[in-house]
Amino acid sequence: MKKIIAIVLTLVLALSLSACISRPVQSIGDEVEATTIGDNTPANIDIHAALEQINLLVKDDEPMDIDEDALTSLYGIESAWCKDFACIATMGGVFPSDILMFEAADDEAKANIKEVLETKLDDFLTQAQNYDEDSYALASSCKVIEAGNYIALFLAPQHEEMENIFLGK
């Protein structure tokens, strides 16, 4: 009997201790790091074809085209940095979603775009903290993705599917 009680008590204590250990949380100060895709990346990405597929995912969220002017006014990205781009934002949800895909003009331009996207993601993380759990979880799980001369950010609930579409997976 005593052994059973001891085992039960041990389990209870073990469970309570494990509950007390908090999960590591990404802090606001942490820099967002871009994910660079390896050898499986296709040499060329048809970002417009990818956008067509992505549009199907967000068709109920009021997608809105982002043109050159909006690219500058909303994100501070200059069109000269882009050899090509395919971008939309959606009006549904608590925060607008940003679906941004670029083919950079050159390495320097790519670095500029990357900096802007990482800042965007950092800002979103700051704004979402203590705001609503879903937005913060989203901000914590999104990444800037690089593939060759292409770079993208999918700040949207369906970001994993979008990333796969972008990478042709």
């Binding site: 809105m64 002017d69 800002d123 979103f124 903290q129």
Partner: peptide
């Protein structure tokens, strides 16, 4: 705040001229 952030996106087509919307941020 985030309510105006939606407006910021919406008027990126110029429907509020060249209004400066950069101080519309979430959680503000």
């Amino acid at each position: 705040d985030s309510v105006s952030l939606k407006l910021r996106y919406y008027v990126s087509n110029g429907s509020l001229g060249s209004a400066n919307m950069s101080f519309c941020v979430g959680n503000f």
